[in-house]
Design a protein around this nucleic acid. Structure first.
Lengths: 204, 204
DNA sequence: TTCTAAAATTGAGTCAATTCTGTTTTTGTG
DNA sequence: CACAAAAACAGAATTGACTCAATTTTAGAA
């Protein structure tokens, strides 16, 4: 296999994503017309819809790359976390937040989040939910790791704590991308303050 | 004042909202065409856009009614909360959740949430953010009330706890409306489990 | 009552996402 | 090297939210 067709297909995928990434960043999600993406990718409109169900799915593919990168970076922290519960959480969350605007603008995040709630059953909606779950799992894994090390009391309901931390962080991040003027350091500080409550509750 | 013009205006507002509520519930948000809403409300398309900036704002007006009702119902709990931190939180959150599907279907909630992140600066976006803030404030007020009564330790960072509780609940609610098959009792149980961590941390 | 300016209404027109149908390209077979 | 079936492509047509210039209605003054 891996014939001409396969290669052309992969190439077209890449061209579409490249064109869309550039145009989303330049003109914003709404401003990037499908027609323009098609022109820049040198395919027809019909072809784009052959590869992606709708405009949102194109954004979805870009978001997934970003989040997977973040998940990867997070693995290191879970493997060998800072020797202190507060720092461990702050480090992991820091990685998520600091990476978040590398490829995606706030506007792109807003659109991605909106689409994922609007169409939870579309390919993108499901993928986004899976990514959220993966992030929750990673935070849970960190808590469990800290329990093993003895930094977190062993009688604590780890999964529940993980969900609390993720849900709070995610909601704060949503509010963050909704306000164009919001800054990363303030976001981190606010989350840290909230997490202090939890750290006090679960620390050994 | 209160001349003919005022009365007609109020009447048209009501007719549009009534028509939209009915059609949103029957056909879903996307399925309810502006043309159909206009026809049912016996106004023209242009008139609808004279009253609301966009389709989302119509939904926004309906959501605002719902949330305000919930906020009202919550006031009673804050005024005289159950004599136990866990129950107090559960009662307030219970009111929010149990009321939530009175007027709005899950699909309508999904759309409303999506629009509020997509267009945070539109009239609806801002209104929705304000409603979220009001709910957060109410939870904070409950925590403070419990501190006064002596059920919550006075050295606790009340605002931070309020935010944690609201953010977690809200995120859980978002996931709830995203899954059509999700049930209210399970949602409440999951939130209760998560809140137990916090209750243990802040109880006097 | 009559008239005028302001406010509101109207619906045909615009714009952009998505769909649909006919055409082209690729693949595998004889 | 044909050829038929399958896959992919192209872009014109459709659809539905939203705009805007023309028309109608109302309020208030003379």
């Amino acid at each position: 296999m891996s014939g001409l067709r396969e290669r052309q297909k992969a190439d077209r995928h890449r061209r579409i994503i490249d064109a869309a990434t550039a145009l989303f960043r330049e003109a914003g999600y709404e401003g990037a017309k499908i027609e323009a993406i098609a022109a820049q990718a040198e395919v027809s409109i019909g072809t784009i819809y052959n590869y992606y169900q709708n405009k949102g799915d194109i954004l979805g593919a870009i978001v997934a790359m970003e989040v997977n990168e973040v998940l990867n970076a997070g693995r290191g922290v879970v493997a060998s976390p800072p020797a202190n519960v507060g720092d461990a959480l702050d480090t992991l969350i820091g990685i998520y937040i600091e990476h978040s605007l590398n490829y995606l603008s706030k506007e792109m995040w807003r659109q991605a989040m909106a689409i994922s709630t609007q169409l939870p059953d579309s390919p993108f909606g499901q993928a986004y939910t899976a990514l959220d779950r993966a992030l929750t799992e990673q935070i849970r894994a960190l808590i469990m790791r800290l329990q093993e090390i003895g930094l977190v009391r062993s009688d604590i309901d780890g999964p529940a704590v993980g969900e609390l931390v993720f849900n709070n962080m995610n909601m704060m991040f949503i509010e963050f991308v909704k306000r164009e003027e919001a800054k990363i350091p303030e976001l981190r500080a606010a989350i840290k303050r909230q997490n202090r409550i939890l750290v006090a509750a679960i620390g050994a």
